[in-house]
């Protein structure tokens, strides 16, 4: 019954003999591994949720325009794209959708690689492949929106 109190009584802490300092859980110290010294994963978690909410509007709106309105996919052509990218509004829509969807998807895939790829080497190279493909796709898509030329021919 009084085992706990008798133990703490026998320790006899006092100003001259203070209790050992206990770090709060997860406090960052010099021994914390580099990878967990920042709040990167927290920001990633928040980004997945905020970008997801915005993507609901952007991607579902995009699918509605491309697949449902105006005859669905049958109307899509170079001339149709030229008509849409004549408007800065749709250029901005596509640009934001491109960046958010690619970063959201890439961060999701990063999580999945971390979950399933167990060997350090495999995990490293899969992520390098993912990052390369992501940077390439985002830059290519951005370039295409900004350099689009309706009179290419």
């Amino acid at each position: 019954m009084s085992a706990v109190s008798s133990v703490s009584a026998s320790e006899g802490t006092s100003p001259d003999n203070p209790a050992p300092l206990i770090e709060p859980p997860r406090a960052r110290t010099a021994r914390t591994p580099k990878a967990t010294r920042t709040n990167f994963e927290l920001y990633g978690w928040v980004f997945m949720r905020l970008s997801g909410i915005v993507l609901v509007v952007l991607v579902l709106g995009h699918l509605l325009i491309q697949l449902v309105l105006d005859g669905g996919v049958s109307k899509v052509s170079f001339a149709f794209v030229a008509g849409r990218w004549a408007s800065p509004f749709w250029m901005a829509w596509d640009l934001i959708m491109l960046w958010l969807a690619m970063l959201h998807g890439a961060n999701g895939l990063r999580t999945i690689i971390n979950d399933y790829a167990q060997r350090d080497g495999t995990r490293f190279w899969l992520k390098m492949l993912l990052y390369t493909a992501t940077v390439f796709t985002v830059l290519l898509g951005t370039l295409v929106i900004f350099t689009f030329d309706p009179n290419i021919r």
Binding site: F78, V81, L98
Partner: peptide
């Protein structure tokens, strides 16, 4: 579904990039 959409998006940006090649290549 997340992985599927990501792979589609990769191909989709490539096919859209054909507007920089020629109207015929895109169409």
């Amino acid at each position: 579904t997340g992985v599927l959409i990501f792979f589609f998006l990769f191909v989709h940006v490539l096919d859209t990039a054909l507007v920089r090649v020629s109207p015929e290549a895109y169409d």
